[in-house]
Design a protein around this nucleic acid. Structure first.
Length: 577
RNA sequence: UGGGGCGUCGUCAAGUGGUAAGACACAGGAUUUUGGUUCCUGCAUUCGGAGGUUCGAAUCCUCCCGCCCCAGCCA
């Protein structure tokens, strides 16, 4: 960037700020609107979830987009519940949605709206359409309407009720509202064109009868407006400028525009973008509901789920998700983002902020034969090498400790530099130890204990004689350890794209049986007793962990592994197989 | 074989007629008391294909190919 004034140095954060928000086609549209003054310099977006399920990471993309645009252009973003189908929607979902949006770090102030708040106005607009001869009450059955609609290649036929008089339509629609008809007896339809090449325009249904109470309006209504009628009008009522939705609504834009044009109302611009797909998981509400209903997972907030509540419980941070949503970009082509990018954003954030601790997942007892019995050393350990302000803590060391079973091999292969018979390694922040003997269960042959010796001169982890070791192991003093349960998570599916199914199979066939591994005999350093949920820790050399918000108890702590550390050794092993 | 969209590295994605950004992944190497972090290095002579226009094309034109969406009284 060229500086115009040579006497003024460029701002320092020009270089340190990191990647700026990349532009995209929606920002181009808005930039142009700002130049032409199309909306009087306003940007007003909305995030319009239907409260019929929990939000997932795909919604996060939309949330970050809509709220992010409002933030960057000094505009506003509304939270609006698209609650026009009382058979599917529940109050539980609106509460969870609000919690999730807030957790992601966004604020809608007092602009919490519900399409159901507009039912009166919507009814009035429907009446206007009828009076103008642009809508009619149809008395065909659902089945008949489908048959009359035609196909992709053949035009539809007009309903015999299409030419009812305005008066009759008004009367019928009023009586629909008054509850004089059964579900399905009539619908209100837009009168457009049964031969339209866009099937959506073949006299779309605007209202249907449903004698079902609504979670907000109760029994006040028994007719409910359809999405296409509701959404554009809600946007219009809220003076939205850019109505951003996903690609599958591209066909619906013609109807969005038609309704607003017929009614001659304030007319936002609908813009479509490609929804997020992530490898090794599914991101459709229908499929997520099945995972919950069929007990493939423990619930919407199961840490294996890609739901916001699931990944929150798993230990993901809002910052990492926001960052991810910026990095994936925005376009109109269908794509599947590599879940490794999400994990990268997570590690990047966690590495900076998570205090380091030691925890042994699969303990192997080590007795230090030349260490005095009953003695305890308090050793200084760095809380976070990435953060000098994080300070130090003390960790107890004693004659009997636990190390990770994976850190010892009786017959080590070439590139294994951890502990082995006769080999010396460093115990982090403690001493060098050398393995002298391997104790096995005489019956099973299983290794039950290691006998080692330590070098007292290496206290803290450095040898005064300058000798080096190839590995540093984490450890926990046996007498001081907390017993805890750790839940290790992996990708929910074994297939990169579980939506792509073989003949006769469905996506559940690719569920990963190892997506959850429960380890119930973990040994953690004593300081972890203070750990509370929502606060991430790095278990050194293993990964990032967080207290499970639901199942952890004071006398039985439960930790979730949020994500592993990158593991070069594991990759080497995998390559070998 | 109707209509609406979309095809740029393994995965995302910039690029808007002037000679293919970046990120992730991957592969090497350096530093390291985490096989972590960090730091270097490499990674599309070519943009779905074929023609054409142009001094010059991923960008413009023509034809072809492939993928996604729409036939709910779901959203």
């Amino acid at each position: 960037m060229a500086s115009k004034d040579q006497s003024t140095p460029p701002p320092a954060d020009n270089l340190t700020k990191g990647p700026t928000v990349p532009s995209n086609f929606i920002r181009f549209i808005i930039d142009e609107d700002m130049e032409t003054g199309k909306w009087g310099g306003r940007v007003h977006t909305r995030f319009p979830p239907e409260p019929n399920g929990y939000l997932h990471i795909g919604h996060a993309k939309s949330i970050c987009l809509n709220f992010g645009l409002a933030r960057d252009y000094r505009g506003l973003c509304n939270l609006r519940f698209d609650d026009t189908n009382p058979t599917k929607e529940e109050i539980e979902y609106v509460e969870s949605i609000k919690e999730d949006v807030r957790w992601l770090g966004y604020d809608w102030d007092d602009r919490e709206y519900y399409a159901s708040d507009y039912f009166d106005q919507l009814y009035g607009f429907a009446m206007s359409l009828i009076r103008a001869g642009n809508a009619y009450v149809d008395s065909l059955s659902a089945d008949e309407i489908r048959k009359y609609r035609g196909t992709l290649t053949e035009p539809g036929r007009e309903s015999p009720y299409r030419e009812r008089s305005v008066e009759e339509n008004i009367d019928l629609f009023q009586r629909m509202k008054d509850g004089q008809f059964e579900d399905g007896a009539h619908v209100l339809r837009a009168k457009i064109d049964m031969a339209a090449p866009n099937i959506i325009m073949r006299d779309p249904t605007l209202y249907r009868i449903r004698h079902v109470p609504h979670h907000r309006t109760g029994d006040r209504w028994c007719i409910y407006p359809m999405y296409d009628f509701t959404h554009c009008l809600s946007d219009s009522i809220e003076r939205i400028t850019h109505s951003i939705c996903t690609l599958e609504f591209e066909n619906n834009r013609e109807l969005y525009d038609w309704v607003l044009n017929q009614l001659e109302l304030y007319h936002p611009q609908q813009i479509e973008f490609a929804r997020l797909n992530l490898s090794y998981t599914v991101l459709s509400k229908r499929k997520l509901i099945r995972l919950v209903d069929e007990d493939h997972v423990s619930g919407w907030d199961d840490p294996r789920m890609p739901t916001i509540s699931g990944i929150r419980r798993r230990g993901y941070t809002p910052e990492s998700i926001r960052n991810f949503c910026e990095r994936i970009g925005l376009a109109k082509r269908d794509s599947i983002v590599d879940i490794a990018l999400l994990e990268h954003c997570l590690r990047e954030d966690l590495n900076r902020r998570a205090p380091r601790v030691m925890g042994v997942l699969r303990p192997l007892k080590v007795v230090i034969e030349n260490y005095p019995e009953g003695h305890v050393d308090m050793l200084d350990a760095l809380n976070n090498p990435e953060d000098p302000d994080a300070g130090m803590r003390q960790v107890p060391f004693s004659r009997e400790i636990y190390i990770e079973r994976d850190d010892f091999m009786e017959e080590p292969p070439k590139k294994f530099f951890r502990l082995a018979p006769g080999r010396e390694v460093r115990l982090r922040y403690a001493f060098f130890i050398t393995c002298r003997d391997v104790v096995k269960d005489s019956a099973t042959g299983e290794i039950v204990e290691l006998r080692c010796t330590y070098d007292p001169a290496t206290r803290g982890g450095d040898a005064p004689d300058g000798r080096k070791v190839k590995a540093t192991l984490h450890w926990v003093s046996a007498a001081h350890a907390i017993n805890a349960e750790c839940r290790l998570y992996d990708h929910l599916f074994t297939k990169e794209n579980p939506n792509e199914t073989a003949e006769g199979k469905d996506f559940t066939a690719y569920l990963n049986p190892d997506a959850l591994e429960i380890l119930s005999d973990c040994k953690l350093e004593p300081g972890l007793l203070q750990a509370t949920s929502g606060f991430p820790y790095q278990f050194e050399r293993l990964g990032y962990f967080v207290v499970d918000a639901k199942d952890s108890r004071e006398d039985r702590m439960v930790f979730n592994r949020t994500v592993t550390l990158r593991d070069t050794w594991a990759r080497i092993q995998k390559r070998r197989k």
